[in-house]
């Protein structure tokens, strides 16, 4: 597999959210606005890239049976780094993402890539894999957030497109998250088949 396909597979063909259906809790939980979705996506991308890199660096030193606990510790460390840094320099984003920042640690995408890819491949491909998956994840979250924000309040990234009094509140509320994601999966399935 060339590095290019390695990178692009996360965007559409193996998109972690739309195709692999991983990491759905933050996907649904934080996407009330496009900005929150993007922030969450980038935080997860950082954790993905860094943990993929470290896991592939140390993989030969870790005995097989304690592989998973060791990976979890590595991932949890990077999550804490994100948590502390965001709290220090982006306090308002930290507040709106709330509980979902520490929960990156149980995001199946991260552990899944560490176990399925980084523990078997070299550092370079692991970083690219993490980057591709992370960007695919961010794209999915931003898209979902943008659609919900647009339908619900008439804004995209805080930019008013139509008057907010015509917004359909249900899309900002929880049911909207499920429904929009359902239809997005439908569309992506179609695109992948074509």
């Amino acid at each position: 597999m060339s590095q290019l396909t390695n990178f692009t597979k996360g965007l559409l063909k193996e998109n972690p959210v739309f195709v692999l259906l991983l990491g759905l809790c933050p996907t649904l939980g934080v996407t009330t606005t496009a900005f929150n979705g993007l922030g969450m996506g980038l935080a997860t991308t950082f954790v993905l890239v860094m943990s993929n890199m470290v896991v592939s660096l140390v993989k030969s030193g870790i005995p097989d049976k304690v592989r998973i606990p060791a990976f979890i510790v590595i991932i949890a460390s990077f999550v804490t780094v994100v948590e502390l840094t965001m709290q220090a320099y982006l306090p308002s984003l930290f507040e709106s993402l709330g509980l979902f920042i520490p929960l990156i640690v149980v995001n199946c995408v991260v552990l899944g890539r560490a176990e399925a890819f980084a523990s078997k491949n070299n550092v370079g491909s692991s970083i690219i894999d993490g980057l591709g998956m992370g960007i695919g994840f961010s794209l999915a979250l931003t898209l979902l957030g943008a659609i919900r924000e647009f339908l619900g309040t008439g804004e995209v990234f805080g930019l008013q497109i139509f008057d907010s009094s015509y917004g359909m509140i249900v899309f900002i509320l929880n049911p909207g998250a499920f429904i929009v994601l359902g239809y997005l999966i439908l569309v992506v399935n179609r695109l992948n088949k074509a």
Binding site: A177, L181, G182
Partner: peptide, 10 residues
Amino acid sequence: VPIAFVVAGI
């Protein structure tokens, strides 16, 4: 999956 999500929404 798509219909499952829509049902979950309802």
